Amino acid sequence: MRRWTIGLLAMLAGCGQADEAPAPANLSEDVPVLPSPTPTPEALVTIPTRFVGSWDVSGAACTANPAAASRVVIAANAVRMGDTDLPTRAITAADAGAVDVDVIGDRSGITEQRRYRLALGSGGSLELIGVDGLTRLVRCDAPAGAEAAARNAVALNLAPDGLQTVAGASSRSLPFGTPAEVVLRVVEAATQALPQRSRNADCGEGPLDVATYPRIAVYFQEGRFVGWSARGRGLTTMGGVGIGSKRADVDAVIVAPVEETSLGREFGSSGLSGLYDAKDTVSALWAGSTCIAR
């Protein structure tokens, strides 16, 4: 029995050794940690306009002439750090409005590809994350802003079944059911703004997550795009229907019967809904699930 016990203990010891976790890596080594890309990054043609311009560590540094080595100048397709130009190899959307920019640079005489993450921080500051960690910069100016805005222009249009975008000669449909992260990136690019996020748990169709931009609120349920509502003038359907449109102009492009409801003089057409005010002007416009109380 003693020999069996010793043998069993030896087997268990052997199993324990085989299952042991490897020794932890030496984390004290000076190994740069680059930002990891999002699981399914969306490729961008240019760096978004909100990042374009000159940045430095302080307002005083911005006025220095010549500029110090801390100066960062971001163009649509290049990044300049100090006196070094870093052409971009790839630009991809990241989480929460950030952007990952892969550039070709020189480090200690060796040409290598680096990744920098650009994100907007409090007060419009730039958070630049790269091989040397996080650097916070303030905006000096945006000399290339107008040119970059023209190249990056994305027109956002309202639709009864979702949203549509037009960029140059290309268009894109974002129907209801599209993943939330895709819709958020596109609307952000079109509005050049980050949304205010909230959650409405008191909806008959179930809790809705809301992303509110200056001209539109976008609604999501379980990570999917389910509705939108216009906020003020500026956004219209492809036919030109938007807040501020006259009833005669609406009737000229869509068939939209009007009825008196608890909301007021409400009209609807193939999923598109809205309200007219006393002057027959569109005062509200929405589609999909928006948690409107009746």
Score class of each variant (00 low, 15 high):
257 P>E: 09
292 I>M: 08
268 G>V: 08
17 Q>N: 14
115 R>K: 06
196 Q>P: 00
239 G>V: 01
217 A>K: 00
44 L>Q: 11
32 P>Y: 08
156 L>S: 07
182 V>R: 12
270 S>I: 06
59 G>Q: 01
192 Q>N: 15
18 A>L: 12
60 A>K: 07
291 C>H: 02
82 G>D: 11
133 G>T: 11
52 V>C: 09
105 G>V: 02
87 P>W: 00
199 R>N: 14
175 P>R: 04
13 A>P: 01
112 E>V: 15
134 L>V: 13
33 V>R: 14
111 T>W: 04
117 R>N: 05
158 L>S: 03
153 A>L: 11
165 T>N: 10
22 P>A: 15
148 A>K: 08
188 E>T: 10
129 I>Y: 01
94 A>Y: 06
23 A>N: 14
2 R>P: 04
98 A>L: 05
156 L>V: 06
67 A>Q: 15
260 E>H: 14
22 P>N: 14
138 V>T: 11
278 A>H: 13
127 E>N: 10
141 D>F: 03
20 E>D: 09
236 T>K: 04
100 D>S: 05
172 R>L: 00
39 P>Q: 12
61 A>N: 05
214 P>K: 12
98 A>R: 06
126 L>F: 00
152 N>T: 10
246 K>V: 11
293 A>T: 14
72 V>L: 15
200 N>M: 12
19 D>A: 10
93 A>K: 07
127 E>G: 11
108 S>G: 00
42 E>D: 04
53 G>N: 02
268 G>F: 06
245 S>C: 08
2 R>N: 15
28 S>F: 01
220 F>D: 03
172 R>K: 01
35 P>W: 15
274 G>I: 06
258 V>P: 03
264 G>D: 04
290 T>W: 02
205 E>F: 01
68 A>F: 05
34 L>F: 09
118 L>S: 04
237 T>M: 14
166 V>D: 08
158 L>R: 00
83 D>V: 10
196 Q>A: 08
179 P>Y: 07
208 L>I: 15
233 R>E: 12
291 C>D: 08
207 P>G: 02
242 G>W: 10
139 R>L: 11
52 V>A: 00
39 P>S: 06
243 I>N: 00
163 L>S: 07
179 P>S: 02
15 C>P: 02
55 W>S: 04
269 S>G: 07
149 A>N: 09
67 A>Y: 11
247 R>T: 10
35 P>N: 05
292 I>R: 14
202 D>M: 13
240 G>A: 12
258 V>H: 01
182 V>C: 01
121 G>H: 03
79 V>E: 12
146 A>F: 08
53 G>F: 00
31 V>T: 08
246 K>D: 10
148 A>C: 02
146 A>T: 15
86 L>E: 12
246 K>H: 13
156 L>G: 03
131 V>D: 07
99 V>Y: 03
